[in-house]
């Protein structure tokens, strides 16, 4: 059965007398256990907002929150806050927050911090909770005895492992990771990525992996969603999105990456990210898109379905609208494949 199906999710914030369209019609599916979906995109594209909507950990200034979130066939949006907290948050869906390494409590022993959600639930004894914390700490690759230590005695990579263990303590089916390695060195990052690969396989945790680095997403994710201005400009299998992108933004994102063994410098992304209180009319990407044509300025492209089950929100995929531009751009894309 489909693990997670998000349909037409909206999350808007009030900001003064304006509305921030942080999540503005997002759909996303995770079919299987142990599958990882990457959400990549620039700062401010609404990645964290979508995650907080899934965790229902919303700020007070929410202006709009609706859509459908099916987890294992259960509609989550109709649950009361109490039921959501009792049944879903941490138990079914857990999250490693952006920058959470730095919010470990400095005066609590590691083992206790990891066990805390279990203790708060009050369903197991303290002894049992601590035991489970210790075995999880071992599972995420930390040396024995770390449960007795304090956060300041740990390296950055070790702290991130602790945070991951904390998220796993209630045996969730879905783990959301928001930029879990962005404060770490590449070598430590690689160690954490290997750990996440292990957890995907055994016990088969499904993941939503949020990052601004599409290269890093390819290290873990079976599917990739490319977030732009509160929507997903493109979604599909990692193979399709990385090797055969059908949205100009994805294409430019790939070309803005530095490549180790290429002598051509990366190309900076043109323009600035849009102001989400006033998303551009027409295609949201049109002000920055080198390939924009008439219709892009006035009409919003729908999600054109792709053969891999994904989609791309770009008129170039509609030969009836874009005419021979379509072929030209496909050729261009083909030439700039990774």
């Amino acid at each position: 059965m489909t693990l997670l199906a998000i349909r037409d999710l909206y999350l808007h914030y009030r900001s003064g007398d304006r509305v921030v369209h942080a999540v503005d019609g997002v759909s996303l599916t995770i079919e299987n256990k142990g599958e990882a979906v990457g959400i990549v995109g620039e700062s401010g594209s609404g990645k964290t907002s979508m995650a907080t909507a899934l965790m229902r950990m919303l700020p007070r200034n929410v202006a709009r929150f609706d859509g459908s979130i099916l987890l294992d066939g259960q509609e989550l949006t109709i649950l009361s806050d109490d039921d959501f907290r009792r049944q879903i948050r941490w138990k079914k869906i857990a999250m490693v927050f952006q920058g959470s390494m730095s919010i470990l409590n400095p005066v609590l022993r590691i083992g206790f911090q990891v066990a805390e959600p279990l203790l708060a639930g009050g369903e197991v004894s303290k002894r049992e909770a601590l035991q489970r914390a210790e075995s999880l700490l071992e599972r995420v690759g930390l040396p024995a005895g770390i449960a007795q230590r304090y956060p300041h005695e740990l390296s950055g990579g070790q702290k991130q492992r602790v945070v991951i263990a904390t998220a796993l303590i209630m045996n969730p089916d879905l783990l959301i990771l928001d930029e879990p390695t962005s404060a770490l060195d590449v070598s430590v990052q690689a160690q954490i990525m290997n750990l996440l690969k292990d957890l995907k396989e055994d016990p088969g945790i499904s993941m939503i992996f949020i990052t601004h680095d599409i290269g890093l997403a390819s290290d873990l994710c079976d599917h990739i969603a490319v977030a732009y201005a509160g929507q997903h400009a493109e979604f599909g299998s990692a193979e399709r999105v990385l090797l055969d992108p059908h949205h100009p933004y994805t294409n430019l994102l790939l070309r803005s990456l530095p490549r180790l063994h290429e002598t051509e410098p990366p190309q900076a992304m043109p323009g600035q990210p849009p102001d989400l209180t006033r998303p551009p009319a027409g295609c949201r990407f049109h002000p920055r898109c080198p390939w924009a044509f008439e219709v892009c300025f006035s009409e919003a492209p729908p999600e054109y379905p792709m053969a891999d089950g994904g989609h791309a929100r770009c008129f170039l995929n509609d030969a009836a609208v874009s005419g021979d531009r379509f072929q030209a751009h496909l050729r261009h894309w083909a030439e700039s494949r990774v």
Partner: peptide
């Protein structure tokens, strides 16, 4: 060599491989 091997370049085959890493702490 380890530093360079740890840099993730966008490649959908990456996820089927474990990344070679130097063991231990910095």
């Amino acid at each position: 060599q380890a530093l360079i091997a740890a840099v993730p370049e966008p490649d959908p085959a990456n996820r089927f491989k474990r990344r070679p890493v130097v063991p231990g702490e910095p």
